[in-house]
Write a protein that binds this DNA or RNA. Structure first.
Lengths: 150, 150
DNA sequence: TATAAACACTACTAATTCTATAGACTAAAT
DNA sequence: ATTTAGTCTATAGAATTAGTAGTGTTTATA
């Protein structure tokens, strides 16, 4: 399961992706309301995404958040790694955060690892090739549903 | 990431799978030692697997645990669901434990759900079609590695 | 240049899950 | 009887999750 935090992040990013062309910052309160996300919690999430270079922000009146890059260049995998940590089902499979499994002796012959590697490869390939734009194209902007009615 | 508990369960089951033909029960202590698993923790895990019908046990001298079914009929997906819960990355994708996402209005148009469904389908298909036997065939018995040398 | 609007940052907390450990109990074999 | 081995319940520390609170800092603009 992905965390609620990650889902909140994605919802907010999809909203920002949909608004990208306007080049205008969107208020946290706005994103929180549209996505039904606790505002204070969302603040933390957006701040983290900003510090990781995904978002830009402007303070003061007329401020808010915007995507730092076009939605086609923001990958789902990147976001999930930032918010939920490594994608790998086993530490010994992670490329971004490799760690030997505590009790494992021989990685190359581990049959658990073999199956999980199959899974992981598919997963990484999918998530690192799916952009916010791609998501916005199929299915409408998730977050928008329910606010702008049927 | 799968939990340590799940990895412990799989290691023990793979050992039991490898020993299946002997029809002789294997001691918890034995499994614990071979897999470098805390014994008391493993007890709980095996008990749970027994209560779910995956294992059989015998008490008293000459007792221990054995697979309740041939290794070819014990699926990885089944084990992971028992130990770690639903496989689905989103509650609204789980077939065994469906739950509407808290803030979601329209599942059918949710673009997060759409990507995750792709992932989930692949995952379920892989894990529900991989048996202990299948795992034992490729890669040697994981757990055995390191105990029976090279 | 005051002031209001927004984000930035730190700290705290409640609840849950993960990873165990302890100890008493029960059943089977000899 | 006694030993062997699984069964079951309770407890506990650490980590993670999902927030909340409150103060600080920056910017626009009246």
């Amino acid at each position: 399961m992905i965390t609620k935090k990650a889902k909140y992040a994605l919802k907010a990013l999809l909203e920002l992706g949909a608004d990208y062309d306007t080049k205008k910052p969107v208020l946290i309160s706005n994103l929180a309301e549209r996505g039904r996300i606790p505002k204070k919690f969302l603040e933390l999430i957006l701040l983290e995404l900003k510090n990781k270079g995904i978002l830009e922000s402007r303070k003061g009146k007329g401020g808010g958040y915007l995507l730092a890059k076009p939605p086609a260049q923001v990958m789902l995998g990147t976001i999930l790694r930032i918010i939920d940590g490594p994608l790998a089902p086993l530490p010994c499979l992670s490329q971004t955060a490799y760690r030997k499994c505590d009790e494992c002796q021989d990685e190359t012959h581990c049959s658990i690892r073999a199956v999980m590697k199959d899974l992981h490869d598919y997963q990484v390939n999918l998530l690192d090739n799916t952009s916010l734009e791609g998501m916005l194209e199929k299915g409408c902007a998730v977050a928008a549903v329910g606010n702008y009615a049927i």
